[in-house]
Design a protein around this nucleic acid. Sequence first.
DNA 1: GTACAGATTGAG
DNA 2: TCAATCTGTACT
Length: 204
Amino acid sequence: MVKKLSRKFYTQPTLKVAKELLGKYLVRKLGSRKLVGKIVETEAYIGPEDRASHSFGGKVTERCKTEYLEGGHIYIYLCYGMHWQLNITTSLAGKPECVLIRALGHPLATGPGKLCNYLKLNKSFDGEDLTKSKRVWIENRGKRTKPSTGAKLGAGLVPHRNKVSGAGKQQVVATKRIGIDYAGSWAKKPWRFYLKNNPFVSKI
DNA sequence: GTACAGATTGAG
DNA sequence: TCAATCTGTACT
């Protein structure tokens, strides 16, 4: 069953969305072609309190202002002057929370920068509404990972130890985020999620 | 205005 | 291990 994800999905708590996006399909329409890739790796960035987030402390800059949009919008920005990073906003309007899409199940989309290059995503998609857009959206193709009933998210997880949850075919692993060692204790939060044993997940 | 670091990547 | 090179922040 193919079903486009609705506003209701995106406005759920960020950690939940980050986890449930795994196994969903990102669809990008390029002219008459349609590129589709399964999401296999994500990271959550939670608002004013997350030191690794651009909106840490409630800052609103020209770059990160779209992060404050209601769940279901695209927040895309340039990193290191050359790589675009695709984020999906979550939660309610005014709350700077989002999920970074780090990898798709495609050899040319195995990293946040490569993914955007492959799907031809750039600044023109900043603020795009995934529930209304005709050129990019996310689908549930009936093979979704089973919602976790075991490990609790957030504060309940112990840093430095990977937790595997989800009894479905595809297991979800939670571990610490990548490339944000400067963020102190926030760098250790197990807010990176990926599908266990998936070959397209970055190996770190 | 200048200096520097960053949610990265591919080449050497 | 490094450089590519845009954006935001902390200085002068």
